[in-house]
């Protein structure tokens, strides 16, 4: 379990993080979101003991990051947002160097490094120079480095930034597997769809202040809008009236007159009832696709105005 206890960090008159308090259960995957300069990286660096809080403390499995940073470090694997390279080093040597720095025995090193390379999908690139790896491969190698000492907690700062779609999917699958192993994962990212897919908890920061911390389910439950894309097999303008009876407004999309965008507030009928109503009214529904934008909507609502923030629970 990780507990942030009124953690603040200031640089002179600049308050990078203001009184962050939250309890993260073991095995949770926590997404940190917020605009640039909101304090995400500061929170992660505080947790990894790279910087010390101005006030407050973080307790990691009973250990204080202020009083016992070296033992906290043993429990944490950190993947920064940049991939620092050493010249003239192969992927195997890169991992071997960090394994040595982790005081791993030679036999253990020679056993674990090929396994780790295979795990992050770099078995074929074992002898490739680190400098010549693609961004996606470098990110996976960096994750492999963070996992070398089998930490209980993973701290990932913008792990998917700059990755192509395939690399993002591979990284996401890897993180799913790590979550299933029971690791507690912190992810800072601007790609909300990835976080919505990965995270069990969300922490929203803005200007160093905590806007919200809750489970993903609770957070998205209170979004004001839900969107559904409905494609028809042929024209049926009555969909607008049927949707209205369920509390949704329907508009044909500009690019496809047979596709309608339905949007409704949280007070609207649930999606299953809406679908049943459409079918009962003989609307020729070809596809019915709820749009998974709930987290984005929650984020936009919570970080837009103070008034809206106060309307939300757990803020």
């Amino acid at each position: 379990m990780i507990e942030f206890r009124s953690v603040s960090k200031s640089y002179g008159n600049t308050h990078a993080l203001v009184s962050l308090s939250c309890v993260i259960p073991r095995g949770a995957t926590v997404g940190l979101i917020g605009p640039n300069g909101s304090g995400k990286t500061t929170a992660l660096r505080l947790l990894t003991t790279l910087i010390t809080p101005t006030s407050g403390d973080i307790i990691v499995d009973g250990l204080s990051v202020c009083a016992d940073p070296s033992h906290v470090r043993q429990r944490i694997g950190y993947m920064p947002d940049t991939f620092g390279v050493y010249e003239s080093m192969t992927a195997t040597e890169y991992l071997d160097f960090y394994a040595r720095c982790g005081t791993m025995a030679p036999a253990q090193r020679s056993a674990i490094i090929p396994l780790m390379l295979a795990r992050v999908g770099l078995a074929d690139a074992a002898q490739t120079a680190v400098m010549s790896l693609s961004r996606g491969m470098a990110q996976r190698l960096s994750l492999g480095r963070a996992l070398l000492h089998n930490p209980d907690i993973l701290v990932l700062d913008e792990p998917a930034s700059g990755l192509d779609p395939r690399a993002r999917i591979e990284l996401r699958n890897l993180l799913h597997a790590l979550h299933d192993e029971g690791k507690t994962i912190f992810i800072s990212s601007h790609i909300l769809s990835d976080l919505a897919d990965l995270c069990t908890h969300m922490l929203i920061l803005e200007h160093g202040k905590t806007i919200a911390y809750d489970t993903l389910a609770n957070m998205t439950r209170f979004t004001h809008q839900q969107s559904i894309s409905v494609a028809l097999t042929h024209h049926a303008p009555t969909i607008i009236d049927v949707a209205a009876t369920c509390g949704y407004s329907a508009h044909p999309t500009a690019t496809d007159p047979l596709r309608y965008a339905l949007s409704g507030s949280t007070l609207a009928t649930d999606r299953a009832t809406l679908l049943r109503a459409l079918l009962a009214a003989d609307i020729p529904v070809h596809t019915f696709a709820p749009q998974e934008a709930a987290l984005e909507q929650a984020f936009l609502q919570m970080t837009s105005t103070d008034q809206q923030m106060q309307e939300l629970p757990n803020a």
Partner: peptide, 13 residues
Amino acid sequence: ERQTFDLIVLTQL
């Protein structure tokens, strides 16, 4: 400058 300093500091060295 190479942004590898944090990674070394976080090891058991």
